[in-house]
Amino acid sequence: MIEPHKLLGVRDLSVRFATEAGPVLAVDRVSFDIARGETLALVGESGSGKSTAALSLMGLLGAAGGATLSGRIDLRLKNGSTHDINRLSARELRRVRGNEMAMIFQDPMSSLNPVYTIESQICEAIILHQKTAWPAARRRALELLHSLGIPNPEKCMTSFPHQLSGGMRQRVMIAVALSCEPRLLIADEPTTALDVTIQAQIIELLKRVQSWTGMAILFITHNLGLVAELGGRVIVMYAGRVVEQGKVAEVFSHPCMPYTQALLRSLPRLRRARAPRQRLQAIPGNVPSAVDRPAGCAFHPRCGFAAKGMCDTRLPALEDCGGGHLAACLRWRDIASGKAA
């Protein structure tokens, strides 16, 4: 089903929610792969569906949450077999989570239990998945905390979550996630709640961890700068769909989809007095709400290149605009050749 070097293959993943305002298509036929040891960034604004997509990879979106999933999510396990996450039983899912893939969130406080010490939370995760005894689990936990740059691991182990700073809590979450040596780490906005200097620490840490463990990272963020920092490949999402994907350097230097282009242009960049101050090129309009999405290309009402009778009626498919760089725009050729007004 998926090529041998691939760890994860997502095919036509759609997620629907039943809300009071009617059905919402949060994720609309999204497909992508993650290779072993690869870094893939999923970037988008609020309502782009990036977090929903991530949660469904973990099998965390079920009928209980009012979500309906379709499509395939094939994961290659450590034993070499492949399984569709959407078709696993709750029991099998629990085994996959942690052992095969792990997730860290924006707010580590909400995923740590406030009444248990860090020691019991990390050790519990280890014992649950690896069937070791407490002393061995404890040794492993200390080792992990130490390797994640926590200054005083012994003291950290006896602390409660609220006694730690935001950066420390995120490190602990990373330790919990790494405890069973997953091959895929899903990081959902892990640095958004942190200060920039702490964010820099966590990013460095994730890169270092990846270099020792060889795990793949799926990094979900709204911050384009961070995507560049991480390298690897990027998927840009807008209104539930993938609108552009490719190597980060390629996508950022030659974006094909007008949304990516506009987003990159609208970002204030540090000039350090090298260039004169220029007015930011803002994207007009608002991010469309999931309940009320424009017909055709969802970006067309905000797009400078939108053509009447074309972009507002036809849904663009992803097209290869060179070397595996995909973009979903009906006019990308015109835009690239400068013919589009």
Binding site: P151, S165, G167, M168, D195, V196, T197, I198, Q199, A200, Q201, I203, E204, N223, L224, G225, L226, V227, A228, E229, G231, F252, S253, L264, L267, R269, L270, R272
Partner: peptide
């Protein structure tokens, strides 16, 4: 200096040398 160097930029070449501060506030 550290604050400026910690800012991620879409073009990493522009950022210059990164200084990662140790520890917490």
């Amino acid at each position: 200096e550290a604050l400026l160097s910690a800012v991620p930029d879409p073009d990493p070449a522009l950022r210059g040398k990164r200084i990662v501060l140790e520890g917490d506030i």
